[in-house]
């Protein structure tokens, strides 16, 4: 059987050059990666140090505490506050070129803040962000250009930016960029790991009887009233 002939135009030279640069930097990243990953801190974040005095708000650029990300310095942009009180954040990328169409250049020249990874956005609780340092804030232009498309994107759709600010499309299953996405997805899982928050008991201090408190003898009506004994047969009005 002969396949239907599908013709393609010449590849976009800018995209090809872009991908070549990205591949080269990815190769450097892998060549310089440590043989063993750093050991994660065993100290709960709540005890790891004082909170940053600046209240968390949309537009913040926060440096994640090493208890959240021990593998290196990672910044996140705070997008917006969610209904439950958590914040939606998007990490800045490790490389200087956007890898895919869902990563965008920010216009900043600082290596750690050149690329914003919209595809990798996730929720973080206020406490975690409060203990991460406020490094800078996005200006109005950046908020409009970078944050608004992400905040208004639907749950299944991706935010869109001009092609000259994003990476090439990803289609081939053996494209090395899948390895990069895998690595960054692992970072996302580490950063929003719920075990870091510990167990929360919702019993107030006043509800627990302390050992030294006096207690009326068993069977005393006053004692039974406190507990609302379900065996009582006294009808209620």
């Amino acid at each position: 059987m002969t396949l239907p002939r599908v013709n393609r135009d010449q590849p976009d030279p800018d995209q090809t050059a872009h991908l070549s640069r990205w591949l080269r930097e990815w190769e450097l990243l892998q060549a310089l990666a440590p043989d063993t990953p750093p050991r994660a801190s065993h100290t709960p974040l709540a005890l790891a140090g004082a909170a940053d005095p600046n209240p968390v708000q949309a537009g913040d650029i926060r440096l994640l505490h090493p208890a959240i990300e021990p593998n290196g310095v990672r910044y996140v942009a705070v997008l917006c506050q969610q209904r439950g009180g958590d914040f939606l954040v998007a990490p800045f990328g490790l490389l200087s070129e956007p890898a895919t169409q869902d990563e965008v250049t920010t216009g900043r020249t600082t290596p750690a803040l050149r690329v914003l990874c919209a595809w990798n956005r996730f929720e973080m609780c206020r406490d975690d962000l409060q203990r991460s340092w406020l490094a800078d804030r996005l200006n109005d232009e950046e908020c409009h250009t970078l944050l608004t498309p992400m905040v208004t994107a639907t749950a299944t759709g991706a935010a869109t930016w001009p092609a000259d600010r994003t990476g090439p499309p990803l289609r081939h299953p053996l494209d090395p960029r899948w390895g990069y996405l895998e690595m960054e997805s692992e970072f996302r899982q580490r950063a929003c790991r719920p075990t870091r928050h510990g167990v929360v008991y919702d019993i107030g201090a006043g509800e627990l009887r302390k050992a030294a408190e006096t207690r009326t003898p068993y069977g005393t009506p006053a004692d039974e009233d406190e507990d609302g004994d379900e065996d009582r047969s006294t009808p209620h009005a």
Binding site: A48, L63, T110, W133, L134, A135, R137
Partner: peptide, 25 residues
């Protein structure tokens, strides 16, 4: 030069990150 954020609110926050790693280690 690489780690400092120029003209930022707290451009050398990476130093806080460095020393915060000692907690609990």
């Amino acid at each position: 030069v690489h780690m400092t954020l120029p003209d930022a609110i707290h451009g050398k926050a990476y130093k806080e990150w460095l020393f915060a790693r000692t907690a609990g280690s």
